[in-house]
Design a protein around this nucleic acid. Structure first.
Lengths: 254, 254
DNA sequence: AGGAGTTTGTGAACGTGAGAACAAACTGAG
DNA sequence: CTCAGTTTGTTCTCACGTTCACAAACTCCT
């Protein structure tokens, strides 16, 4: 949950009934593993930049912040890319994971909503260096229209359909205010986008076959606040006793 | 789990041995549930703003983007705040969830690293409206020092310790480049911060008792890319057959 | 008051994920 | 070639999370 827990769409029941045939290797990599592959990839890149050619599962696990058993199990879903008694070849494993994730190719990405966050995303170097190329910036505000950002011009919403189709964009990033997010989403999906990264604090409804992932800053903080509150309570020794819940209904109405 | 997967710290084995006593209510709310509470809270606020006074688990679940069974089970961990045959009182439930999360009080927050992303975070209105008040902005770049952002001045790293202590800050947001993240983290923790939201693309090492949550934009995109790639393959009918992995070692060395 | 209709709260079944532990497979020394 | 040492890949077990399904509890109508 993945805070940002995975929001794979499609009704769970009426799935594609993944071939009930007997002994198919059935390349079904668990969602939890997939979410960790990019972390391993980053760790490998770091090792690679330091000139390290080989590493054990223990070393890589430490660099990635997981335990080594989990790492080995995760990697085993991809194949047997290590050597017993030796470890993993950094470059080789890096390539295999990149290929599995699909970042050996370049994915064109559109960002919609160029406010504070949109600006930050457009300038973020981490995308381009990892298989993603931002090829279009869209905003509804006519005042921002035409503004240059790096080597790209901001375009209006009326160009959504043309741009997505012409540039063959499959991935869209929504950084608009919450109210416009669903509209933007609908238009992106209608135009052909099938993966959406949503920064707007709203639940997006999409048809089956479209993936949505949500990044919600205030939700992350709230989760931290919960634990923080518990720490404070534990410190006061008031762990089990909870103040009797005040009922606002009594005050307000009735 | 999310990108923003939870990274609760502390060794799993040597836990606090949660009282083996018999029938304690044992307020242990599952991590997965906690991650969803803020989503429910937001949905309730939306309903409240629309003037809706009561809702069923079905309605609330739809608004929150989950199924109703899960919603009811989640809420049942907090207590019995609904009425059978009727549903939930929106205001009442909203208050109960807010109290459980701990956002009825205001949490002071420090943001470290005021680059593109830091700017965006500092200006994000979603924090202040939901129980968080940004009380300090820090950056290492002397050129940015003193710059005003809203009604706040950007201060230097040398003030980390004084600010955290004087303002009693428990929650820190790290939006620095990856290289400085661990240093900043160490100083925040040493000064008394016990919850960290990390936007830097790096694994942070913290002592037990400190919570870290990670938001990594490029990882989210990579997860989408994986699914996108699979969709493309499925469309080509090449689902089960995978191209034989090319071994770069053969080309490069030996 | 009684009965039909709703909706919650929860026990039980099921599926997924994590971790421990170990056999298999490699290296290198003698 | 053999043996000791190392590290992977995998199996097994347990814990966690999700979903189903239903009894309990409420409302409203007659």
């Amino acid at each position: 949950m993945t805070s940002a827990r995975s929001t794979r769409n499609g009704t769970p029941g009426e799935g594609v009934s993944r071939s009930a045939s007997a002994r198919a290797p059935e390349r079904g990599i668990p969602e939890a593993t997939i979410a960790r592959l990019p972390v391993y990839l980053r760790a490998l890149i770091t090792l690679s930049e330091r000139g390290i050619a080989t590493c054990s599962s223990e070393e890589l696990a430490t660099a990635a912040g997981v335990n080594s058993a989990k790492l080995r199990k995760d990697l085993s879903y991809l194949g047997s890319y290590g050597t017993r008694g030796v470890g993993y070849d950094v470059e080789y494993l890096r390539y295999q994971i990149a290929r599995e994730i699909g970042v050996t190719q370049d994915w064109p990405v559109v960002i919609v909503g160029i406010g504070n966050l949109g600006h930050a995303l457009a300038n973020y170097s981490g995308f381009s260096s990892r298989g993603f190329r931002i090829v279009a910036l869209l905003d509804s505000d006519p005042a921002r229209l035409g503004e240059k950002l790096g080597d790209m011009r901001i375009r209006g919403f009326d160009e959504i359909e043309t741009l997505v189709e012409e540039l063959d964009i499959a991935i869209g990033v929504i950084a608009t205010p919450a109210v416009s997010a669903q509209d933007v989403c609908d238009r992106l999906v209608a135009a052909g986008v099938t993966s959406i990264l949503n920064f707007a604090p709203t639940v997006l409804n999409v048809p089956a076959g479209v993936d949505v992932r949500k990044v919600d800053l205030s939700i992350e903080l709230q989760i931290l606040a919960y634990h923080e509150q518990r720490k404070a309570l534990a410190f006061d020794g008031a762990v089990d006793i909870v103040e009797p819940p005040v009922d606002p209904r009594v005050v307000e109405s009735a």
